[in-house]
């Protein structure tokens, strides 16, 4: 309002219309929303990028033909609907996995499960592999996929 002749000052809707207020507001909030939505989509993928970086083999997999990848016999990632008892088993194995390094040795995990007195360690480990919670890397070790674990037990 500084330096503006009081008589020329507009008020109300007239002022908003004259100063293109509606358009500025709509454009403004749209840009803010677009920016943050794009950002949220992007950061929701960061952990996948990190996983790719940790597992360069996965990048290679993207370029091999479908038939090859089918034949590759990797660990299936299909989401399984587990029973409550199976979910409990997953939680138990999660505790065991937390005591291990980022990369998990499957024979070692199996041995620990046996030593801990967990029931049916072989079948349950197979369940973890089938559900994709335990997934193989290219080095002969396995990783605990926290995302799939949470999705599976929730």
């Amino acid at each position: 309002m500084n330096g503006v002749d009081a008589a020329s000052v507009l008020y109300g809707l007239e002022a908003i219309n004259a100063n293109n207020g509606w358009a500025i507001s709509v454009v403004g909030i749209t840009i803010v929303f677009t920016g943050l939505v794009a950002l949220s989509v992007l950061i929701s993928q960061i952990h996948k990028l990190v996983a790719l970086y940790d597992n360069p083999g996965k990048i290679k997999k993207l370029f091999v033909s479908r038939s090859e990848s089918v034949a590759r016999a990797g660990t299936p990632k299909a989401h399984l609907d587990l029973t409550e008892a199976q979910k409990q088993v997953c939680r138990q194995y999660n505790l065991l996995a937390q005591t291990m390094d980022d990369v998990i040795s499957l024979p070692k995990l199996l041995r620990m499960a046996e030593l801990s007195g967990l029931n049916d360690p072989h079948a349950n480990m197979n369940l973890l592999i089938k559900s994709g919670i335990l997934c193989a890397d290219e080095q002969g070790y396995f990783r605990w996929d926290e995302d799939i674990f949470i999705r599976t037990i929730s």
Partner: peptide, 18 residues
């Protein structure tokens, strides 16, 4: 952040410059 832009309109309506 919608508050920012709604207030912007309010300020225009009260006679402030853009």
């Amino acid at each position: 952040q919608a508050g920012i832009f709604i207030t912007f309109l309010g300020a225009l309506a009260l006679g402030f410059l853009p």
